[in-house]
């Protein structure tokens, strides 16, 4: 084993650091897309009309039951064929966002179904409208299980972004692959990329735990 510090500081770091924002951008945008789209999927899923609820449920199952990478390739090759040309990064964000939206939809559903039925009945007995019921009764009570799960998905999405390197998006993994094949030295680049992911996800895990305690404390007073 020969770790070359000079190579690390002169070649690897200057090329990896500028692409860190791409990874973070992909993570944040995919997460936002997943959270919002997941909400819509969940609303379709719990619809009273079977004709909407059943296909939505099957769609969620299908997205959850197949690999993200295949979905990414599918979007990547399909979109140009139907006349939509997007930059690879946008396609990737779209793919990761849709995949995680299906996961988030199930999280929301579980959180809302965990609210006791008596709460709905009490809200109805108090003559609260649908909006007040959701805003003041159901959503605050369903948040404590939802928030930590969403935090874990944020970390999960962060660790899924290396898949974008398959679509030639210039993110961290792609950059270290390029360095590796240019100089035929993978050790430094791949190890640094791994370390970056390790540190970031450990930090993120601590943050998620902090948010989790905040949420449960502020709601279950």
């Amino acid at each position: 084993m020969n770790w070359d510090w000079q190579f690390t500081f002169e070649v690897v770091l200057p090329r990896l650091l500028p692409v860190v924002p791409v990874t973070i951008q992909a993570t944040v945008l995919s997460f936002l897309l997943a959270v919002v789209l997941g909400l819509f999927l969940m609303l379709l899923r719990i619809s009273r009309f079977k004709l909407i609820a059943v296909p939505a449920g099957e769609l969620i199952e299908l997205i959850r039951g197949t690999p993200l990478l295949v979905q990414l390739f599918f979007l990547f090759f399909l979109l140009p064929e139907v006349g939509i040309t997007l930059p690879p990064l946008t396609t990737g964000i779209l793919g990761i966002g849709i995949y995680n939206a299906a996961l988030c939809a199930e999280v929301y559903r579980a959180g809302i179904q965990a609210v006791p039925a008596g709460q709905w009945e009490a809200a109805k007995a108090l003559n609260l409208g649908a909006y007040r019921t959701w805003r003041d009764i159901i959503i605050p009570q369903s948040l404590p299980p939802i928030v930590p799960a969403l935090g874990n998905y944020l970390i999960g999405i962060f660790k899924e972004t290396p898949l974008l390197s398959f679509l030639a998006v210039g993110e961290l993994m792609h950059a270290s692959k390029l360095i590796g094949s240019e100089y035929y030295r993978f050790t430094e680049a791949v190890t640094l990329a791994g370390l970056f992911f390790l540190v970031m996800s450990l930090v993120a895990a601590v943050l998620v735990r902090m948010v989790e305690t905040r949420v449960s404390r502020s709601i279950l007073r």
């Binding site: 084993m1 020969n2 660790k159 899924e160 972004t161 290396p162 898949l163 390197s165 993994m173 270290s176 692959k177 590796g180 993978f186 050790t187 791949v190 190890t191 990329a193 791994g194 992911f197 390790l198 996800s201 450990l202």
Partner: peptide
């Protein structure tokens, strides 16, 4: 557990395939 959960699967695959040969 922390190392393997904290980094990406893809990074680990690369590490096993391209970096382990450096260790012989």
């Amino acid at each position: 557990v922390e190392v393997f959960r904290g980094t990406s699967l893809l990074v680990q695959l690369f590490w096993f395939f391209f970096v382990l040969p450096e260790f012989g």
